[in-house]
Design a protein around this nucleic acid. Structure first.
Length: 257
DNA sequence: CATGCGTGGGG
DNA sequence: TCCCCAAGCAT
């Protein structure tokens, strides 16, 4: 569950060391739930999207309150937890508990887009037809379905990659529609790339990094020095407070919660 | 359904 | 150098 939260939009290589330290410090949900949320934010480090740290902490708290401290195995219980959506609920139920679920992440979607649909990339959002294909291909029994889910996902992550796929090493290359049709280039709507320089997201990251790297509360002037554009800085600090990633500690000081 | 939300590595 | 991302979620 911890790894799934961390892997939501963050590459595996960057997750590994943080995941290891996290589990050494908080081996159970109760251990994490007993800490202030700010400790989770600090331990999250530079994985990005720090709201995931708050959600993981909130999920740990909910697990203690609603499930006796044990991570639930049922999809419906999992998806009811903060920060757990369809993918994460299915992944935990399947990978950790061996249940039969359609695990549909970006890697799996790409594998099916190529092998079944014959296109280079899947659509921007999951379609009904796409989910039906994934459901139909899923093996019937729990154990085989769970193995299938992790196998297809690894295939997408390691072989059927977004760029420079290693088709020579692909076990289903002979069955791949995209390959059979001569690797037609992607011709859908342009895939959106998120801007970064000068955005609120960058500003928030800078501000939070100051607090993360400090031992205790920091003076407003330290935050002022981290971002020169005042209106944006003020707006972003307010949004961080609103998001509970930062608290107003004193008259002119801020801290992690 | 589109948008906002971090970060640093690789092509 | 610069661009494109990488195992989503909540709103």
């Amino acid at each position: 569950m911890v790894s799934e939260f961390m892997l939501q939009q963050t590459p595996v290589a960057r997750v590994l060391p943080v995941h290891e330290q996290w589990l050494a410090r908080w081996p159970t949900p109760a251990d994490l739930a007993a800490e202030p949320t700010g400790e989770a934010v600090r331990a999250w480090g530079r994985l990005g999207y720090p709201r995931r740290a708050l959600r993981l902490h909130a999920a740990a708290t909910a697990i203690v309150e609603r499930h006796g401290g044990e991570v639930p195995s049922a999809y419906d219980d999992l998806i009811a937890l903060p920060g757990v959506g369809d993918y994460t609920a299915a992944a935990i139920a399947s990978f950790a508990f061996g249940r039969r679920h359609v695990v549909l992440d970006t890697n799996v979607r790409r594998v099916f887009a190529r092998t079944v649909q014959g296109v280079e990339f899947p659509s921007a959002s999951v379609t009904k037809a796409e989910r039906e294909v994934a459901t139909e291909l899923l093996p019937d029994d729990d154990a085989t379905a769970a193995t299938w889910a992790v196998a297809v996902m690894e295939l997408g992550a390691l072989v059927c990659t977004a760029s420079n796929p290693r088709c020579a090493a692909c076990p289903v290359a002979e069955q791949c529609t995209w390959r059979a049709s001569g690797y037609p280039a992607y011709d859908g709507p342009p895939r959106k790339v998120q801007t970064w320089a000068g955005t609120d997201r960058q500003c928030r990251g800078r501000l939070l990094a100051v607090l993360r790297d400090a031992d205790g509360p920091v003076h407003r002037s330290r935050l002022d020095a981290a971002w020169s554009e005042e209106a944006q800085r003020v707006r972003c600090l307010a949004s961080l407070v609103e998001d509970r990633l930062v608290v107003h500690a004193g008259a002119d000081t801020y801290a992690l919660p």
